[in-house]
Design a protein around this nucleic acid. Structure first.
Lengths: 223, 223
DNA sequence: CAAATTTTGACAATCCTTTGACACTTCATG
DNA sequence: CATGAAGTGTCAAAGGATTGTCAAAATTTG
């Protein structure tokens, strides 16, 4: 279990990290919002602990960017005390919990365990269904009726993201964030090409796609 | 949505219930733990708000009994301040959140909404209703009955503005300001054209529009 | 190295938006 | 009531932006 901690005060950061590591978690440390987003993209931690006030990108914005492509990873906010309005904003952004400073070690750990427990039960399935396709991510295959379709890792990742956001349009940026690592910036036809190949594999009529629909100016959608 | 409130102090109980009802929830009121358990068994509320200190059966015990047969219903604890150890015990019992007294109305409601959102991911507030149409801005679609209507970003933006100002006429300038850029200055039929196309998509009889009405010399209105 | 996978660039196809022309409606005025 | 001005509806077509498609190159994998 890996926990990302974003906190600009080195002392608090160190204290939090030590506390979590002594409970058996692996920690990733970020001192500002940009580091946090980068670390999240590359390391995919199981939980995020975000300070609100940070240089460059604040905790709210980090939360917003993460939630754009991952709706489930638990996000906890740390805040200075008596910032009640922050609670409302943070929770409505999709945060899972809110810890006011000064906090105690046992409170932080209790809230982290609670947040992890809430999301844990879902992770048991090693496959998911999209349209009439059963996708097995680890095996890199999808099955329809008795037919087996081979998939590449990137294709599985794309299908997974569409499945996790079924019913809503997934932006091109969200694809690049999640399925690639937005470290480099393809203004090319990379995503389109992958969608194109994927459609040829899974759509009955690739020219009239029913599973992966394009949402112009946004991205793609599975509904 | 029904919320069970267990609280032995009548004044606090009443205040909480009033607050929730004003936000559209139905409330069930219990003044001790036994009432709470009984009410939960018979009414199956969608969320529980439990005071810790209560006669006969305390909040922890109520939580334990409920969790014995329902692992998912959100449970929030209310506690007197400075009972930090309570947080740890409560969360480890399977509670979802913890609200310290004194609490504010907006904090309580934000935490309740957040808890409900976690268990009902479908109930996202990312859509609005206009006439008999449900508009999903992020998906760029609107739904009427079982019919799905695709929308463009600009059309969604127009509908959003009309919805936000329902009942009043929205000026052409307001449309250009909000849906286009401020310094944009089309002296042309741009807005009319978009309204025209939008009506063709959403009105039963585009020639006799019921949803988007024209307010001559001003702009348009949705009532 | 060979095969599979990913990325790129060019071009075509498609969709959204804007524009201009014109018909129609409404309103104020004579 | 007739008339003209102003505002709006409608259409076809142009223009711009986005996406689909293909072939080929680059990269990774075994």
């Amino acid at each position: 279990m890996t926990i990302l901690i974003a906190e600009d005060d080195p002392l608090t950061l160190e204290a939090l990290a030590t506390c979590m590591e002594s409970e058996g978690f692996t920690t990733l440390r970020a001192q500002d919002g940009k580091q946090a987003v980068d670390l999240w993209r590359t390391e995919k931690p199981d939980l995020l602990c975000l300070d609100i006030m940070m240089p460059h990108i604040d905790g709210y914005e980090v939360c917003r960017r993460v939630r754009a492509s991952d709706r489930t990873v638990p996000i906890l906010f740390l805040s200075a005390k008596n910032q009640e309005i922050d609670v409302v904003v943070g929770l409505d952004l999709g945060a899972d919990d809110f810890i006011r400073k000064p906090f105690t070690r046992s409170e932080v750990m209790a809230r982290i365990r609670a947040a992890l427990r809430r999301t844990a039960p879902q992770d048991k399935r090693d496959h998911f269904t999209i349209a009439n396709l059963t996708v097995h991510p680890r095996a890199l295959i999808a099955q329809r009726d008795s037919q087996t379709i081979e998939l590449t890792p990137r294709e599985v990742s794309i299908l997974q993201l569409l499945h996790d956001h079924r019913g809503e349009a997934v932006s091109r940026d969200a694809f690049l964030d999640t399925c690639w690592g937005l470290n480099y910036f393809p203004d090319s036809r990379t995503l389109d090409q992958h969608i194109f190949l994927l459609r040829k594999k899974i759509e009955a009529d690739p020219a009239d796609p029913k599973i992966i629909q394009t949402v112009r100016a946004i991205g793609y959608r599975y509904a």
